[in-house]
C-alpha cells in the first residue's frame, strides 16, 4: 500500500524478494485538468508495469472495501506513505498485521511530514523504521531501525531518497523475521514524542527575524517541495515577486533582518546570515544562485520580505 515515490522504491524491493505480491493499493488517480487523463500515482504506474493487480479505493472505512481486503487473505501488508486511514478491520486482516515504513526515529515526528520536520528542527540524526501498525498515530511497536546522520547539505529531497533506499534494503529482513517468528517488536519510548504536523502555507513563509540557523533549516527542510518563500520588490518594479529558495547555508553576518549583505545572496537574519545557493522565481525552473543572478541581479542593500 502506498502512493508517492517512496512506495515505488519499496515495491521494487518487494518484487526482488521471493514473496508473492498479491495486490497493490494506492490512492485513486487525481484529476489532471481539462482534456487530460487522470494522473495515476507513481506506485500505481509501477505496479501496472509489473502486471500486478492494483486497487484504488477512496477510503477503507467502508465495509465492502474491508471485506474485499480480507478476502485477499494475505500474510502481511506493507504500508508506505499511503495517506488513507487503516481502520481496525484492515489492520487485523493480514495474518502478520500491517507494517509501516515510517521516515523518522519514533516517537519523534509521529504524523504526516516527518522528513521535512526533522530537517526544519535541525535534528542531527534521522532514520527509517519498520513499525507494526496499530490504530493510533504512529504508536506501534518498532521492528527494525536504520539511522542516518543529517548533514548541512541535506534537503527533504535528499533525505527522502536516502531513507527510501535504506527502507528498501531493510525490508527483506523485516519480512523474513516476521515470517519465521524471529522479529523483536520493541515498544516506543514514552519520552521525546513530537508530532510532525502537516505542512501549511504558514510553514513556508520565511521570517527573517529568526536565527540564520533556523531559516537555513527551514529552506532545506521544505526543499524541493513545497519550498520556503519570501517576497522581493526589484528596484525598478512596484509589485513584489515571490522567490522560492531551495538550498542554503548559514554564516556570520550583521544587518537588518531580510537585508541583502553582498552581491551573492547573503541575507541577514535575526542572528547571523543565510546564503541562498539555489532558488526559483515564478515561471522559471530552479537555478543555482550564479545563474539566477546573471538573469536577475540582486545587489547589496536590497530588502527581502
Amino acid at each position: 500500500m502506498g502512493s508517492p515515490d517512496f512506495s515505488t522504491v519499496t515495491l521494487e524491493a518487494l518484487r526482488a524478494t521471493e514473496h508473492e505480491i498479491v495486490c497493490v493499493y494506492s490512492q485513486p488517480p487525481r484529476p489532471a485538468g481539462r482534456g487530460k487523463a487522470d494522473r495515476r500515482t507513481p506506485v500505481h504506474l509501477a505496479a501496472e508495469a509489473a502486471h500486478l493487480p492494483v486497487r484504488t479505493p477512496r477510503t477503507l472505512k467502508k465495509q465492502s472495501e474491508q471485506d474485499a481486503f480480507a478476502a485477499l487473505n494475505v500474510d502481511l501488508a506493507i504500508v508506505v506513505a499511503y495517506g488513507l486511514i487503516l481502520p481496525p478491520p484492515i489492520l487485523n486482516a493480514p495474518r502478520l498485521g500491517c507494517v509501516n515504513l515510517h521516515a523518522s526515529l519514533l516517537p519523534r515526528w509521529r504524523g504526516a511530514a516527518p522528513i521535512q520536520r526533522a530537517i526544519m528542527a535541525g535534528d542531527a540524526v534521522s532514520g527509517i523504521q519498520a513499525m507494526q501498525m496499530d490504530a493510533g498515530l504512529d504508536t506501534g511497536d518498532i521492528l527494525y531501525t536504520e539511522e542516518t546522520p543529517l548533514t548541512p547539505d541535506d534537503t527533504a529531497g535528499t533525505l527522502h531518497d536516502r531513507l527510501a533506499s535504506l527502507g528498501a534494503n531493510m525490508l527483506p529482513t523485516v519480512i523474513s523475521q516476521l515470517a519465521n517468528g524471529t522479529a523483536t517488536p520493541t515498544k516506543q519510548s514514552e519520552h521525546g514524542i513530537t508530532y510532525a504536523s502537516k505542512l501549511g502555507p504558514e510553514d513556508q513563509k520565511i521570517d527573517w527575524t529568526r536565527s540564520a540557523k533556523d531559516v537555513d533549516a527551514q529552506i532545506r527542510g521544505l526543499s524541493p517541495f513545497p519550498a520556503a518563500r519570501f517576497d522581493w520588490t526589484p528596484p525598478d518594479a512596484n509589485t513584489p515577486i515571490r522567490i522560492k529558495p531551495l538550498m542554503s547555508s548559514y554564516e556570520r553576518g550583521d544587518g537588518r533582518p531580510g537585508e541583502v549583505l553582498d552581491d551573492n545572496l547573503l541575507v541577514a537574519c535575526g542572528e547571523g546570515a543565510v546564503r541562498i545557493t539555489r532558488l526559483q522565481r515564478p515561471g522559471k525552473g530552479p537555478m543555482d544562485a550564479a545563474d539566477f543572478l546573471r538573469g536577475t541581479a540582486i545587489h547589496r542593500g536590497q530588502i527581502f520580505q
Binding site: 477510503t59 495517506g83 488513507l84 486511514i85 504526516a112 508530532y195 504536523s197
Partner: peptide, 12 residues
C-alpha cells in the same frame, strides 16, 4: 483530529 481527506493530523 478531524481526519480530513482520510488523513490523520492531530491538534492539541
Amino acid at each position: 483530529d478531524l481526519m480530513e481527506n482520510d488523513e490523520k493530523n492531530p491538534r492539541f
